[in-house]
Amino acid sequence: MTTTQVPEIELDHVSMRYQTDKSEVLALEEVTVDIRKGEFVSLLGPSGCGKTTLLRIMADLIQPTNGEIKIAGGTAKEARLAQKYGIVFQSPVLYDWRKIKKNITLPLEMMGIGKEEREKRVDSLLELVGLTDFKEKYPWQLSGGMQQRVAIARALAIEPEILLMDEPFSALDEFSRERLNEELLSIWSKVSNTVVFVTHSISEAIFLSDRVFVLSPHPGRLSAVVEIPLPRPRTKEMRNRKEFYELISEIRDSFEGV
């Protein structure tokens, strides 16, 4: 659901090197991408190709060795300080001693948002992710998929322009994962922010995305940018269409050295 062609995220020849005790490791090499405002894109590649590193660079959690990053025309640091990011990690990272509603409220408390506004915003998010009936439960009383929905709601609580998601469904079984894919798209259709989603699942990337950025095996280079022309809203039946399988083949063929 692309709302405009203006880049929200721009990475220009970004590289990342790590110094270990024995040698220097090149994690990313000369990655250049533009992500449009309101676009849903996936960073796809095998383990160790630098997907998470690239996401962390976008979020200003680590600094690249070389290259330039712009977020909405400014720096990544400016975007982070302006609370433009919401981040969902592979693990939900919920606080077991806080009830679901209180877990979602936490970032708003830290920002000093007033109680009335906090209550209004969190109740709306609980409805958005379908967890209103579970707001007084504790995280350990919820399934893994429900916990990730709480994590998504918490990330959206600050009303970020950009949602960064690092393999949020990888620990779930295939059935739960596909259901969460559908629920994520339903949520995204209502909030319409820019989403960058890290995954090593080709079918997941295709089902969710407007475009897929394919990273080669180590070191991570941009192998291909694949447009996903499947209509929205996406339905589970699309996974069985000929076009879906053709996109899987196209992406598999795009990996360098494979």
Score class of each variant (00 low, 15 high):
G220Y: 06
S186A: 15
E182T: 13
P233I: 06
L230A: 13
L164W: 08
M165Q: 05
I248H: 14
I187C: 07
G220M: 03
P217F: 10
F255P: 02
R234C: 04
F213R: 02
W188R: 07
L247E: 09
D210A: 04
M165P: 05
P168W: 04
A205E: 04
V196A: 04
K190H: 14
V258D: 01
S201V: 04
E182K: 05
R221S: 01
T194S: 01
S203Y: 02
E256W: 03
T194N: 00
E204Q: 14
R232P: 10
T235M: 07
W188C: 04
D173G: 08
A171W: 12
L208G: 02
E246R: 15
R211C: 00
S216I: 04
P168N: 04
S170M: 04
L172Q: 12
P229S: 10
E250F: 00
N181M: 01
R179T: 14
A171C: 12
E237M: 14
K242A: 11
R179D: 10
V191D: 03
P231F: 05
R234N: 06
I206V: 13
S254M: 02
L247A: 10
G220D: 03
S249N: 13
T199G: 07
S186I: 06
K236R: 15
L222H: 05
F213L: 12
K190M: 10
L180S: 09
H200D: 01
E161T: 09
K242F: 10
P219H: 04
L180N: 07
P233Y: 10
V214D: 00
E227K: 15
L247T: 11
P233C: 05
E246G: 13
M238P: 14
S201I: 05
D253C: 03
V198Q: 08
F175D: 09
F244H: 15
R239Y: 13
I162Y: 03
